[in-house]
Design a protein around this nucleic acid. Sequence first.
DNA 1: CACCCATCTGCTCATGTGAGCACCACCCGC
DNA 2: GCGGGTGGTGCTCACATGAGCAGATGGGTG
Lengths: 340, 340
Amino acid sequence: MTPADSTAANELLAVRAAELYYEENKTQDEIGAILRVTRWKVGRLLAQARERGIIRIEIVHPRARRLALERDLAARFGLKDAVVVPAPADEVELQARVSEAAADWLVSHRPVPRLLGVSWGRTLHQVAEALPSGWSTAVNVVQINGGVSLSKRPGTAAATAVMIAQKAGGQATLLPSPAILERLETKKAIEGDRTVGGVLAMARGASAYLYSAGVADTSSVHVDSGYLTPADIARLVERGAVGDVIGRYITADGTIADPELDARTLGLGLEELRAAAWSILVIGGEAKHPVARAIVTHGLCSVLVTDEHTARALLDEHDASSPDLAPHDLATTASREDAP
Amino acid sequence: MTPADSTAANELLAVRAAELYYEENKTQDEIGAILRVTRWKVGRLLAQARERGIIRIEIVHPRARRLALERDLAARFGLKDAVVVPAPADEVELQARVSEAAADWLVSHRPVPRLLGVSWGRTLHQVAEALPSGWSTAVNVVQINGGVSLSKRPGTAAATAVMIAQKAGGQATLLPSPAILERLETKKAIEGDRTVGGVLAMARGASAYLYSAGVADTSSVHVDSGYLTPADIARLVERGAVGDVIGRYITADGTIADPELDARTLGLGLEELRAAAWSILVIGGEAKHPVARAIVTHGLCSVLVTDEHTARALLDEHDASSPDLAPHDLATTASREDAP
DNA sequence: CACCCATCTGCTCATGTGAGCACCACCCGC
DNA sequence: GCGGGTGGTGCTCACATGAGCAGATGGGTG
């Protein structure tokens, strides 16, 4: 018998063994009797079948996760944790799944944060909604960047923080300030205000931060809210901005796209996010791949909650800061509001 | 905690457990530690996940089989054995798979038949080709129905029998006669010939029969071979013929469609097939569902080798002899030569 | 022709796993 | 409030399984 013969014969045997084991629930011993081989050989055949991919095991469930991708992400980007959900075809569904996953992560995260700093946006609001009542006990919540009072949906930012706190039986502390001020002096003045300053100080002491990110295009919530004009966005994109993190626009290099604008942006700084023990980024969808990449490759988050496609896009990048990324392409990608 | 809550919570736990068990190869004990439940609960969660179909195990291989369907077929139709292969989209591929499966069955069948009676046709030829050299030792082969000498492919019938015998190191005995004679007297005369009579006697003593079946339409090999005219076929179809078994046209009731024609057909009779310990039908493809049903529901085969779609079609039939089958529809179904 | 290396085989033994069982908590009707 | 269910839990124990190893096999090479 040539080696080729025995390999082929083994493959057939392996298929038979796999059928009997996985479909007929027979023991390896019984299978051995049927196929006229020893039970040890059956075990080996099954091992081979698994290795060669003859046996495909799939977990079909909306709440399933992609643990292998999670491990790869954590290893590649030095994350403390990663959560990757299978991506449904539907973008709306995808956002919902990612948000649910973030809520799940929060619920089971230990140690429970005493104080949780949160940003706002559609994604974060979904996370808040996905949290079960009583998801934790006495977790207080503090906003980490200026609100959305000018928005078409007033109160969303506040509602998000309040909901998260309420469901954990804690208190929410809101940051009573616009996201971006028109003049630097105003920003400094507001920052100096005891109330605002106090909230910012509290935010700096949070034990974990939960935030999402927005895309640098004209559908940004900053444009909707009137903080920025489409022209401002165009200028940011020209300077290489890929999106915003807690209201601050960054480039693919992970640096501030426009320092002047950034100085007028009120809230936690990027360095504080980077230094935090637990900074949890919740982000999903094609349009956000560039900003997700910028955040993840430059250490702005320590936990990433995302979808399978985003995860693969991040892992496929051979050089995250490759210069052939044409930034203006990003401004044209379709995307929905979600910020800061 | 309401029952609904605990059910949902269990489902999530089950998904997590399944991921850790099947994708991460952790032990139930380790999973218990991670999910903070006892290892027995992990076992139960996994059992639930399997029951609910959260875990899908699939065997992806061209030689895979459908054991559940095989069992159902055997039970429903009182077969000694059944082989069902997954159906590829491609009809040519499907015929190849079914033939391979038949060859596999022959190779591993015990007891090894001393003498194997074979029919002929494209399917049987493929089976012969799929058999490995040395598939058995000293199995002699005998043709069980008249040959195809008038055919466009002279010698195929003989080649099939010879190849099967040769590969098992045995002798082939051919039936030197046309399949259908023009006159009854001629048929009786040939049958009485010592050579032909001897072969027929030998065929009656075979320990197993291997055959396929043809569809009753104008693409039948009997038309190609000149044994029957398209008009003959039309007449047979009018009488309810669905196809032929070793040259004999039968109706959905499993009876001879045209006794006069049948009397002129030389070879083993249906009753001899029915009485045989091992009569192995190799049949696949959409067009052959009606004739397969006729054969299987009327006990003409004891072993069925087929494809998944045919198997399901056979099992879906609530009443195989239901009168609302319009026989002339069958004549219009596309089909390729394969007979008798 | 003898040797060697690589692979495969059947085994022992430790570990992993599922069936079955006693128990407990909770829910419901009385 | 109280028994009787009903479903879930943790356990024992027997069985199934995989790791690791010694010996066999077989094909190629000096």
